[in-house]
Design a protein around this nucleic acid. Sequence first.
RNA 1: GCUCGCGUAGCUCAGUGGUAGAGCGCAUCCUUGGUAAGGAUGAGGUCGCGGGUUCAAUCCCCGCCGCGAGCUCCA
Length: 648
Amino acid sequence: MTLTVSLPDGSERTLPAGASAADLATSIGPGLAKASVAALVDGRLRDLSRTLPDGARVALVTRSDDHQDALWVLRHSAAHVLATAVRRVRPGAGIGFGPPIAEGFYYDFAVDEPFTPEDLEEIEARMREVTATATPFSRRRVDRAEAEALFADDPLKLERLAEIPEDEPITVYENEPFLDLCRGPHVPATNEIKHFKLLNAAGAYWRGDENRQMLQRIYGTAFYTRKALKARLHQIEEAKKRDHRRIGEAMDLFSVEEEVGPGLVCWHPAGARIQMELRRWIEDLLARRDYEFVYTPHIANEALFRRSGHLPNYAENMFPPMVDRGPGSGAAAIRLKPMNCPGHCMVFAARPRSYRDLPIRLSEIANVYRNERSGTLHGLLRVRMLTMDDGHLFCTPGQVEGEIFTCLELVRTVMTTLGLSYRFDLSTRPHSGKRIGGDEVWDAAEAALVQALERSGLDYDLDEGGGAFYGPKIDVKFRDAIGREWQGATIQLDFNLPERFELEYIGTDNRAHRPVMIHRAILGTIERFTGVLTEHFAGAFPLWLAPVQVRVLPISDAQQDAADSVRDALREAGIRAETDARSETLGYRIRDGELKKTPYLLIVGQREANEGSVAVRARGAEKKQIVMTAGEFLARVTDERDSRALAP
RNA sequence: GCUCGCGUAGCUCAGUGGUAGAGCGCAUCCUUGGUAAGGAUGAGGUCGCGGGUUCAAUCCCCGCCGCGAGCUCCA
């Protein structure tokens, strides 16, 4: 008896019946056998030790820090080793879930006392004991009764067990002495896990449900090579150094004071400068694309938000009402706006609209106010007064694709200018019952988004069922300088608000039609975007965004006038320049300028003062400075600013 | 909002049951220095807020507020 499998290169191999993926690897070569950790059998990850079905397509998964499947298996196994070690330190620990995640793995434990940093050290040491020897991960199928017996004293596992459908096999994995209810697969043995590190511990709700018990989660990461682990740990260090709260303090960009209130940002002059540049840039880009700007009130009658659906659906995130003349007077309750769309709908509805008016593109770079839960606030990334570069497009169904296309083009312009790589997620209709509008409407809307994406020649990932109840959307994810991904622009179709506000336009048939509404934000919010850019650039903003663009350093008092006149000429050209004539050594002032990430330091000594030149020291270029005339520098720096260049 | 941790000078942090210290920054003076920290002197703190224990609390206990790591949520 034999079985035949096909390999990724299209070739076929015949093996004795009952052969495993490990046997397959051995039959191909000892090197492959040694390098394999798991197998993809008909596209599904399997243990190396599982028998192969006849006719399967098999790809061996070899040790690699570049291969998601390989890392997935390793980290999943590392999670089991973590649980093994925790059970040694806390024998009674209940066991929740322990999956691999994008950058590592975690495991949740039900324990009486939370883990301390010292506990993590000890647990990690125990893990090293476990991985020092080759204890196999062995898979076993069990029936329900046996599984219930095995996990009789672990209520979390019993709960999970009860959810496994009758027709699904129940498997357990054991790396002695630890036994877990688990679908697998795993690496062959514990000694495969060589390069790992526990990172932190924190509470996590059982099953992510805030009404259920709080478990203690331990995060860690694991790789096949020491180099990759070191790179990851370095990335974590780098992220700490780039933390926008730290840089914001050092560069005096902003502050969040307890006395003002949590999640409320005071922008200092340097930070406000960055914000202003971003804002002007976006406004200019929008104006060129036929947007019109509006202002709508920051506070409004509650009735507006009742109509828009915010009060029934979004009240959690809205501040409580204010009443201007006291209760009982008949005065309306007033709310701070959490979004701009209701106001923009009112602008649209304020007069009759013809199809000739469409599309109408309204933009408002406005503050909105959201009563975010206190535990979610974080520097500039999550605040309670935020500034959206908001816009709402009102158009006919036939115009949707073209409008989306233009939005995508705008996204590309913004991301390219800032040197950010990005990708798109297309989120389609949620499951029926959780959406409004008929299937034909959704079909057309999704098709329009797909066509716009394809017309742009852009790749996208599909997030099926991820759309809002009121319409499908395209989300932009961009990657920063150290590889982290952030939510950027969002473009959302909305069939809901035009209904609620009874928006209409008169069509060519002289009858009223409902417009389609598109919500879109390109930066998202200025606060978050500034925070992310601060981390992306590590404070070294491109010249056009830098709060101070040029600092002029006279070598001694004798050159102060010369330095000031260079500074004044730069200012005349709209360059943000200042003189640093402090009574400190030149070395000190250069160091200070570099630490403040000033794009250009101009040194003016007697030589330069005599000949009308400046010694230009570009940020980070150290001693590779160039002497040029003040006029040459001015031309160069204005050009760099006007082109929004990323680097000199 | 929840769990745990933290809260000392403008910033980063040390410290003690007997009302406090460093470095940086800041101020003044000296120094006028050619490419990443010149020197001296000085100011600056209700030790987050409120209770409690104690002869005595910045330190121990409780509550509140804020921050951090996560969870949940999300621009």
